[in-house]
Nucleic acid binder design. Structure first.
Length: 607
RNA sequence: GCAUCCAUAGCUCAACUGGAUAGAGCAUCGGUCUACGAAACCGAAGGUUACUGGUUCGACUCCAGUUGGAUGCACCA
């Protein structure tokens, strides 16, 4: 049950009755929204002003007419005209009470399952497996993880595929390092650590050899690394053997980081290497179909406009074509991405392909999607879910080339230590105040610190609009006050604390819920927020924007805190009121738990 | 040079896609605990939404231009 849709459904017949242009009714109905200001009621309808011209009446008269034409219903308490022609709607409290009772018995808390689910293939994280993850990898990984969870909860089939960078220049670096700088003993003891050391050591050598521009052709070390990569791609036996030896180590390192982050296991991890055998055939097919062309010794595909600009003048005016086979015969990531499209549609039967990748690749995806359509994938929806860069304190992006970005594992570790410290601070101050504070065992405390610490890092990122750039500020990321996961986890822990003290099984409130009494304004406000869950999830899913979930959580948790302040639960005046409030508390806990879970963040019973 | 994105309170960000008085959090100032958890609550202050025009009942949002920034632009991925 979606509150907003319920209200909107009343306006449709009213607008039809007023003979509004049928083609535009959807647009007008969409002008029913949650009230921007709670003083104006629960919902507001803004179509009267827009309609006034076509109907030739004053906006306020139009509003009156719409109100008069609303069908009989049990949910609207009052609909009044305000200002230049706004319609303010207040819902019947009795109706809210009924809805609360319904969602209490619903495992999905009122969120409907989709009538027509789709199959999504979502591509996110996609790290270079030879490098340790840094803060720049955080966004793709956790945004993708959250979108996967959300779409699945709504009922879609979501196949997650981690398109690993496992075949590129970074292996050339490892191969060069292995052949020239290896500490054999260290490698045998701990291959992952030694490979990481080699990787860093070679990067430093490259930097020293080439000065600022480490990719300069003149850089002898970089050249040797490229040579190793080329040999690998050409099937050189030794390099291939080493690649097979390195991969398990690299992957286990990567997976251990994912585990620390607490993200879902990928359904597939088909990296670049997986598609390598298909690439020659793909280029051949596209050439044969006349959708790829020889150009200057390479094979290219047209830009999104369908052109292949070649001269300097032409290239200055529009986007370049993309290479799918280089002059030297090697393939590019565009070729590989075309292979992934084919695989995801033909083998995974995707209806929608999602790519959670940095906004800097938007030109690449624009070109890729256009080519995929020319190739025949016209019934598939392509979405590049781009996100902004991670910026340093100076406001400049952490270029992958600068290599100065803080490591992800270190950041998580730092957050965890801080959360542990906060726990003991809280423990101490509560003891001093005479609270009855249980002495938890060490494993439980470290579990709490982990969930709070990791949650803080994830939430800080997910709570921002993904399209904007992201200033990496450890202090803000590790903050535990304000709009943070800690606040939500705290609200949840308080809910659970009440139930512990009440000594009541939650089951009673979920199988045979008591009648809710919405006497206090804070009770009603909380109830309304709880009922808005389906709407929040739909909004977040429609735009693949997890920050709508955090905004909703923040509203719920704030409403709960105010309620908690003003409405005693266990000491409520009557048993009926106590029951009513216990139900609200249980629902709040369930809503917070669910929404945090969709963000990939865990709750804790105590903190 | 061309293209994409961006510019909102001191700082970090919202604004449900064109609606009422542009909202939060930090930071600042003031008020709340013999306790259902103060990791909290209540309040104050803080704005010419970069600038200039335009579109219309109505613009942070759409259009044009200006300034400033980020990013991308054929053999890295």
């Amino acid at each position: 049950m979606n509150l907003l849709d319920e209200v909107r459904s009343l306006f449709r017949p009213a607008l039809v009755a007023m003979s509004v242009d049928p083609a535009k009714i959807d647009d007008y109905v969409a002008m029913v929204k949650p009230a921007a200001n709670a003083d104006h009621g629960d919902y507001q309808a803004n179509m009267s002003m827009a309609l006034s011209k076509t109907l030739g009446k004053k906006p306020t008269d139009v509003a009156q007419a719409i109100i008069a034409a609303l069908p009989a219903n049990s949910l609207v308490d009052s609909a009044t005209v305000a200002g230049p022609g706004f319609i303010n709607i207040r819902l019947k409290t009795d109706w809210l009470v009924e809805q609360l009772q319904q969602i209490a018995t619903d495992e999905r808390l009122g969120v409907p399952t989709l009538a027509s689910p789709k199959t999504f293939v979502i591509d996110y994280s996609g790290p270079n497996v030879a490098k340790p993850l840094h803060v720049g990898h955080l966004r793709s990984t956790i945004i993708g993880d959250s979108i996967t969870r959300l779409l699945r909860f709504l009922g879609h089939t979501v196949i997650s595929d981690n398109h690993l960078g496992d075949w590129g220049t970074q292996f050339g670096i490892l191969l060069y390092g292995y052949k020239n700088l290896l500490d054999r003993e260290a490698y045998e003891q701990n291959p992952v650590q030694e490979l990481a050391r080699l990787y860093k050591a070679v990067r430093i050598l490259i930097k020293e050899a080439g000065g600022e521009d480490e990719e300069a052709i003149a850089n002898p070390i970089a050249e040797k690394c490229r040579h190793e990569t080329a040999k690998l791609h050409a099937g050189d036996e030794e390099n291939l053997r080493l690649w097979n030896e390195f991969m398990p180590a690299c992957l286990s390192e990567l997976h251990s980081t994912y585990e620390k982050l607490g993200i879902l296991t990928f359904n597939h991890e088909l990296g670049e290497s997986a598609y390598n055998p298909e690439l020659p055939e793909i280029v051949a097919e596209q050439l044969a179909k006349g959708i790829a062309f020889d150009s200057q010794g390479a094979v290219v595909i047209p830009n999104a406009k369908g052109n292949i600009p070649q001269t300097k003048e032409e290239l200055e005016k529009e986007d370049p074509p993309a290479l799918i086979r280089k002059r030297d015969g090697a393939f590019t990531y565009t070729t590989t991405d075309l292979a992934t499209v084919r695989h995801r549609v033909n083998v995974f039967h995707a209806d929608v392909l999602l790519y959670v990748v940095d906004f800097r690749q938007s030109l690449h995806f624009k070109t890729l999607f256009a080519q995929a359509k020319r190739w025949g994938y016209t019934n598939v929806e392509f979405e590049h879910l781009s996100f902004g860069s991670v910026l340093g304190a100076d406001g400049k992006p952490f270029g992958a080339r600068k290599g100065a970005a803080p490591g992800l594992v270190e950041l998580l570790e730092e957050s965890l230590v801080l959360a542990n410290k906060k726990y003991w601070e809280s423990y101490k101050s509560r003891k001093e105040q005479g609270h009855d504070v249980p002495d938890l065992d060490e494993t439980e405390i470290s579990k709490i610190a982990e969930n709070v610490g990791i949650g803080a890092v994830k939430y800080a990122d997910l709570s921002q609009n993904r399209t904007s750039n992201y200033k990496f500020d450890p202090e803000k990321m590790l903050a535990t006050d304000g709009n943070t996961s800690t606040y939500m986890q705290f609200a949840f822990a308080r809910c659970r604390g009440i139930f512990r003290k009440a000594n009541e099984p939650e089951e009673r409130f979920r199988t045979n819920p008591p009648k809710v009494i919405l006497g206090q304004p804070t009770e009603r406000a909380l109830a309304l927020q709880l009922l808005r869950l389906p709407n929040a999830l739909e909004t977040a899913a429609a735009e693949y924007m997890p920050h709508h979930l955090t905004a909703y959580l923040w509203d719920v948790a704030k409403s709960y805190s105010s309620f908690n302040e003003q409405c005693p639960v266990l000491k409520a005046e009557t048993p009926e009121l106590r029951d009513s409030r216990l139900l609200l508390v249980d629902l709040t806990a369930r809503v917070i738990h669910l929404t945090l879970d969709l963000l990939g963040i865990k709750t804790v019973e105590r903190m």
